[in-house]
Design a protein around this nucleic acid. Structure first.
Length: 277
DNA sequence: CTCTTGATCCTCT
DNA sequence: GAGGATCAAGAGA
């Protein structure tokens, strides 16, 4: 069996069931984003009336590592100007811890006009241009200069719009149709697919009209999470090796699989199982 | 599968 | 001026 197929099977129990609502219709836009949960209601319960709860600022007000883990399984929603809703389940994130983190843009306490969003209140977006051509999307967390990078989504709705956005935004490439797996499996790919650009920098994910986070479906069990080294931070010394990248184990939608990290995770899981005896 | 390379430009030193 | 929290294609194993 191919590895991708195997991962698909492994991940199946954590995926949302296929249904007819995967693609939002541009002709029937939602009138407004879901209302934010009040502080009196738990963020871990969906709102009544079936409409999924929008996660409010209290969700983002936690340190980068727990926030990076809490993002997994939540659904990122982007409403385009024409009303089309694009949805994707977050399956991979990275935590950037702030001044002490040599791999972070805020390392050494650097604060510049570009990275200001990292220092703003939890839930603030930090979107920056990378390699002159691509964008990366971060969400500020608790802690000065700390944030979480969104690295991969499982596309749930609006896939054709995503494909079109990826196609037209890709530079200088022939028009081969992208597979679903290629739509959002990378930090800049998901920005292309969701039409997230610099204009989203410093916007508030808790209150913005065009982009928000919804509570993901509550599964029977929490998905297994792999903690691996972050990607593309090779020159950051010891900080490059720390397991600050988190992803849903077995998900085929993840950008980079950390083989060594998965071996470690399995070894630890087995050890903890053995301790139960 | 892995490895290599070019594209392209903002941001900070 | 240099370099980057990336992507996609192509070559080779």
């Amino acid at each position: 069996m191919g590895q991708k197929k195997q991962r698909l099977l492994e991940a199946k129990r954590h995926q949302s069931p296929p249904d007819g609502t995967r693609t939002a219709s541009p002709k029937e836009p939602r009138l407004e984003p879901p209302t934010t949960l009040g502080p009196q209601r738990s963020i871990y319960f969906s709102s009544l009336k079936g409409r999924p709860a929008r996660l409010g600022s209290e969700f983002f007000d936690q340190p980068a590592v727990p926030l990076a883990r809490a993002f997994l399984g939540q659904v990122l929603v982007r409403r385009l100007d024409d009303g089309t809703e694009l949805r994707g389940r977050i399956v991979e994130t990275e935590a950037y811890l702030g001044p002490e983190d040599e791999a972070a843009h805020s390392r050494g306490g650097r604060q510049t006009p570009r990275n200001r969003g990292m220092f703003m209140k939890p839930g603030t977006l930090y979107v920056y241009l990378i390699y002159g051509m691509y964008f990366c999307m971060n969400v500020s967390s608790q802690g000065d200069g700390a944030c979480v990078l969104l690295r991969a989504l499982e596309p749930l709705g609006g896939l054709e719009a995503m494909r079109q956005l990826r196609h037209t935004l890709r530079k200088g490439v022939a028009g081969r149709a992208l597979k679903d797996l290629e739509l959002c499996n990378g930090p800049s790919k998901l920005c292309q697919a969701l039409a997230i650009d610099k204009s989203f920098d410093q916007r508030d994910l808790a209150t913005d009209e065009a982009v928000w986070l919804e509570q993901g479906p509550l599964g029977p069990s929490e998905p297994a999470v792999v903690a691996a080294a972050r990607v593309g931070v090779g020159r950051a010394g010891e900080w490059a090796l720390k397991p600050l990248r988190f992803y849903v184990q077995g998900s085929p939608w993840v950008s980079v699989v950390g083989r060594a990290a998965e071996r470690d995770t399995q070894a630890r899981a087995k050890a903890s199982r053995d301790e139960d005896f």
